[in-house]
Design a binder for these strands. Structure first.
Length: 498
DNA sequence: ATACGATAAGGGTTATGCTG
DNA sequence: CAGCATAACCCTTATCGTAT
């Protein structure tokens, strides 16, 4: 049975040189789409893939359910997400893909009752994922090539439990994610879903839909796809063949996601298409985009990411713990022993402010000029890095403004005119950009000069620059051109406002 | 393709039963 | 009796079949 996903999937290049660069985790879309059909037949999906250079390829996924456990259902998706959340809480999936867990921890995440059948269900689900065979074939016409991958989500599953000396069960279960999943995770394709939000959703299709929308929208806030493809991804039964049947089945999930603030609008441009609009507030509350980063903070974030901390996690650490604390652990990292995964180590130790196992040798570090002043954080023998709430909050330091590399002042002659024009342009935006976005993105902007038909606007950080240019660039230029004439341009620069 | 009624299924809670 | 597991129940939702 072949089903055709109709939506082309955008594919980005991967760093490694490969015959066929393909986005990997699109298979997640269909991995859990079984269950509705009780027959345990092989499920097959064909997806059109658009390569970065515009070339076209076809990707075929085949899922062979295990004879013993049958096809995947929604619960298996939840278990899979619970393991990823558990791994994330432990600092991320390590390079070797091995994640240790106890069934008790997963049961807590899944919020299941404490009884034997809960544990059995989770266990069966893990084994089911291990024994479901996945085959992904990619055909790339231009190269006259193909690539055929065979794997299962978990390359290996081990259940081990001992009794400790008090007779209590002590669990040492582990799974090893297949390298395909590990690579997806580290290349950022497995999105950092808000797992708490994910598990707060109750309606039948809500969880799967949230995953799909968040993946599908990429960096944007709007996602459109055919109801046909949506039905496939959510594993709707064959009886939902008509669009109205799908809409009715999805109604309660839509309602829940709007009520909980993820979606602002669900519409159907025509009767075969669904259009989802994601709330900007929801996305922003979960990224740290809106925050202004000092150069020092940005350097710390980059250092954390270089050491395999996930991008979102790195920003979270710097935002919540401050640069001083982060740098303290970063510099101590090379001296630690038995660190399996630097990213995991850093995330765990910094977020919990855990005492270091090995203190870095102070004298050596200072001589090498790699350790600047620790301030109050200088480790004291025996009591390493204790509470330090107010020491490390980076925002409350007005005196460091002058140290920033770029500080823009309004141009003496054109500054006032620029500010005036900018104010009018923003008024023009009323109705074209919603009020929340206006406030969030433009409150911190300042127009500083107007020369040769070019309006220069200062934004606080590179994120804001990127966001303003890509999302609002064209409407803004249009509005400026409307007031200044056709050749008018907008220039966005990053810097501290004067 | 759609609307809608019938029914199965699922979640949640309480009652009951079993075992040591 | 504690500590569980299961049965019974209610209510909501998912799914299916049928008439239009």
């Amino acid at each position: 049975m072949a089903r055709h996903g109709s939506e082309p999937v955008r594919v980005e290049a991967v760093p490694r040189a490969e015959l066929v660069p393909t986005e990997r985790n699109i298979e997640e879309s269909y991995l859990f789409a079984g269950g509705a059909n009780s027959e345990n037949e092989i499920r097959e999906y064909v997806v059109d893939v658009v390569l970065e250079d515009g070339g076209k390829a076809k990707r075929k996924f085949r899922y062979t359910p295990s004879k013993e456990y049958g096809d995947t259902i929604d619960f298996d998706r939840d278990v899979y997400r619970a393991i990823i959340l558990h791994a994330f809480q432990g600092g991320g999936i390590p390079q070797d893909g091995v994640v240790y867990f106890s069934l008790y921890q997963l049961r807590k995440i899944l919020d299941l009752p404490d009884k034997g059948s809960s544990y059995r269900k989770i266990r069966d689900s893990i084994v089911k994922l291990q024994t479901m065979a996945v085959n992904a074939d990619t055909y790339w016409q231009e190269l006259k090539g193909f690539k055929s991958e065979y794997y299962s989500t978990f390359a290996r599953v081990n259940f081990e439990a001992n009794e400790d000396r008090f007779g209590r069960a002590s669990e040492h279960h582990w799974v090893r994610f297949d390298e395909v999943i590990v690579r997806s995770y580290h290349e950022g394709y497995v999105r950092d879903l808000d797992h708490n939000f994910y598990f707060s959703l109750n309606k039948k299709h809500s969880r799967a839909l949230y995953s799909e929308i968040d993946l599908g929208r990429g960096k944007g806030l709007v996602w459109e796809l055919s109801l046909q493809d949506l039905g496939l991804r959510l594993g709707m039964a064959a009886s939902y063949r008509s669009p109205s049947a799908k809409k009715r089945a999805l109604a309660s999930a839509h309602e829940e996601m709007k009520r909980k603030g993820f979606l602002t609008k669900v519409s159907f441009p025509d009767k075969h298409m669904a259009r989802y609009e994601v709330a900007e507030d929801f996305v922003m509350a979960r990224t740290f985009l809106e925050r202004r980063w000092t150069p020092e903070e940005e350097a710390t974030i980059r250092a954390l990411i270089r050491n395999n901390v996930r991008a979102g996690g790195a920003r979270e650490l710097v935002a919540t713990k401050g640069t001083v604390l982060c740098n303290y652990y970063l510099r101590a990292l090379p001296y630690q022993k038995w660190v399996r995964d630097p990213g995991g180590f850093l995330y765990k130790y910094i977020s919990k402010e855990k005492p270091l196992d090995v203190e870095p040798p102070q004298r050596f570090l200072e001589e090498a000029e790699v350790v600047p002043d620790y301030g109050d954080l200088a480790p004291v023998e025996g009591t390493p890095a204790a509470p330090m709430d107010d020491v490390s909050t980076p925002d409350a330091e007005p005196e460091d403004v002058d140290e920033r590399p770029t500080s823009w002042k309004p141009d003496a002659q054109t500054g006032a005119a620029a500010a005036d024009l900018w104010r009018r342009v923003l008024q023009d935006m009323d109705g074209k950009i919603d009020a929340t976005s206006l406030r969030v993105w433009f409150d911190s902007c300042q127009a500083i000069s107007l020369a040769d038909g070019r309006l220069t606007v200062v934004v606080p950080n590179p994120f804001a620059k990127d966001y303003v240019e890509t999302r609002f660039g064209s409407v803004l230029e249009e509005a400026i051109a409307g007031r200044l004439g056709k050749s008018a341009r907008l220039k966005v620069v990053v810097g501290e406002r004067a």
